[in-house]
Design a protein around this nucleic acid. Sequence first.
DNA 1: CTGTTAGCGCTTTCAG
DNA 2: CTGAAAGCGCTAACAG
Lengths: 341, 341
Amino acid sequence: MKPKQRLPDRKSKVTIREVALNAKVSETTVSRIMRNEGPISEETREKVMKSVRELGYVPNRIAGALASLNTHLVGVIVPSLKNIVFPEVLRGIQSGLKGNHMQAVISVTEYDLATEEEMVRGLLAWNPVAVLVTGLTHNEATSRMLRQSLGRVVEMMEIDAEPIDAAVGMSHRSAGYETIRHLLTKGYRRFGYVAHDIGPDRRARLRHEGMVQALSEAGLGFIAESRAETPSSVGIGKAMTARLLERAPDISVAIYSNDDMAVGGVFHCMETGRSIPSDLAIFGFNGLEIGQQLPQPLSTVRSNRFLIGRTAIEQILNDKERPGSPVRVDTGFEIVDGATA
Amino acid sequence: MKPKQRLPDRKSKVTIREVALNAKVSETTVSRIMRNEGPISEETREKVMKSVRELGYVPNRIAGALASLNTHLVGVIVPSLKNIVFPEVLRGIQSGLKGNHMQAVISVTEYDLATEEEMVRGLLAWNPVAVLVTGLTHNEATSRMLRQSLGRVVEMMEIDAEPIDAAVGMSHRSAGYETIRHLLTKGYRRFGYVAHDIGPDRRARLRHEGMVQALSEAGLGFIAESRAETPSSVGIGKAMTARLLERAPDISVAIYSNDDMAVGGVFHCMETGRSIPSDLAIFGFNGLEIGQQLPQPLSTVRSNRFLIGRTAIEQILNDKERPGSPVRVDTGFEIVDGATA
DNA sequence: CTGTTAGCGCTTTCAG
DNA sequence: CTGAAAGCGCTAACAG
C-alpha cells in the first residue's frame, strides 16, 4: 500500500522564519534584504534571495506595518465614479504613487456625507500615511477624525475655504465668476442656467454663486434656470435644455453645470435644428475630451483633474508632516473659447 | 512660574489597552464588543462604549488583521481608468462591497503585464480576501502568484478561456461574431474596421477574431482596416475614420473597436457631411451613455460593466473558498440595434 | 556586516 | 459572561 502522497499544503504560508531557516541567517537579515536597508554582504544577499525565490516568499505587509507603525497606504475618498472626472483624479493619484510602492485604498461616497464619515473611519483604521478626500465640506465627526488623524490630509478639488491640512484644486467661485465675465465680453446678455442635482455638489453650487455674483455686478441675472434632481448625464442635459427653452425661449446662452450636461445641450440643439451659437450658445465646465471633439468644440472651463490628483500625492510625498498652517495649492483653470459660445 | 501646560500628545494613539483600563475590563472584552461578537452583558457594553467614545478609540485594523489572519481587503486590478468602462466596473465592485465592511485596494496596470505582476505582488502582500484582476491573460509569475494565493481570485471581463478560480464576464469572441451576423442580416457586405491600439487589449482582439471568423464563413473579409497605435479616444476615432475612408471610400459599414472610437466616427461623418447610415453605417462596442444620447443612437453591443463588477464581488462573498474546478459566470451582452447601422 | 531581544495592537483559545 | 496567556509576522533598537 503506497503511502498517501503528501501534497504541499496550500495553506502553509511561508514566512520570514522559513526563509531565515532555509538560508541559515537571522530573520532580521532577511527583513533587511527584503527592504533594501542597511549594509548586507553580496554573498548573504544572494543566498537569501535564492531561498526567497525557492520558497516563493512574499513579505506580509500587515505584519510589517504593525511592527514599523507605517503602512504605505493612502486612503482616497471620491464622491462618485459616474462621470469621468473622478477617475481622472484617480489617474493622477496613481501616476504619483507609481514607483513609491504605496498603495491606494479607494472609497466612494455617492455624495453622501454620512457615507463619507463611515468611509473615513474605515480608512483611518488602516493607519494610512495620508487620506485624500474630496472637497472642503464634511460633517462634524468626519472633520474631527481627519483633524485628529496622525497622517496627512489633503482635500482635493476646491480651495474656496480653509482646509484642515492642505487643499489642492481650484476656486470654483472664480471659475463661475470668470465664465460670466467672459460671456459678457462676448456680448451675451440673456443667460440661462442648466444643472444636474447640485444639492450635494458643493462645487457646482460655488460656480453658480460666482456666476450670480458676476451677473448681478452687471445688473443682470439668470432669466431662467432648469435643474434636475438627478446626477449629471448627457441625457439629463438634453432633457433640462428642452425644459429651459420651453420656459424661456428667448435666452441667448445656456450655461451648464458641467460638460456632460452641456453635451446634452448640444445634442438637443442638433435634434431640434437649432444653430449653435447663433440660436443658442452653450457653455460647459470641465473641458472633457468629448466636448472638444464635437463637430463644434465646446466652450467651457478646463479644470485640471489629473493634475489635482497628481499634485495631491506630491504634497504628501514632499512633506510627511503637516504644515504649520493649512496650505492651499491652486491648480488653476482656463477658459476654453470654443465654438459653442 | 507656571508649570508648562501638558498638551494632549497628538501622537499618543489610543489603543484597546487604554479603553480596557478606562472601562476597568479586560482587553478581550473590549475586543469582543468592538466586533459585536460573543455574549456581553448590556451593562458592560455600555460602560465600554462610553470609554470608546470618550477616548475616540478607533480599532487598529492592521493589528486586527494580523491577529485574526483576516484582512477585509479586496485587491482590484484594472488596466486603465482612461475611458469610463473600468470605472463602471469599479462602481459595480463598490456597490457589492457596500455594507460588508470590506475595502478595495485598487491598482492600475496601464495594460502592461509586467506592471500587473508588480501590482499583484504588492496586493498579495496585504493578504486580501480576494483579488479581482482584469482578463485571463497574465505573465508566468503573475499566474503562479494568483494560483498559489490563499484567497479567491476572480478574473473579470472575459470568459473566453479557462480561469484560475473564477471568471466573470462575457465572450468577446462571440460578441464579435454576433456583430457580423447581425450586420449581414441587415444587408451590409462591405465592411471596414477601425481600432485603437489593440495590441495590449486582448478583448478587442478577440472581438476582431470573432468578426473575421463570421465574415470568412460568409465568404467575406474586412475591405480595409485602420488601426491607431494609441489608446482609444473620440479624437483617435475621428482620425482613424478619416484614414479608413481615404483607403477605402466604398465601404458601407465601419465597425469600431469600441464606442469611444465609434463616436469619433459619428463626429467625423457630421463634420464631412456624410449621412449615417446611408453613406456610412457605424457600429461600436460597449453601449456607453454618450453613444445612446447621440442624435442618432449608436448601434453597438451592450457589455454589462457594472454587472461584471457587482457579480465578481458576489462570487467571493458567496463562497470564501475556491470552487473545486474553475467557474465561469457569463454576464452576457446584447446587440443594440440603434440608428447608425 | 549580522544577530538578539522586545514589542506593534489586536484576536484567539482555553479557563473560569 | 469575562479574563489570562500566547501568539499573528515582522521590524527596531541595540549589541556584537
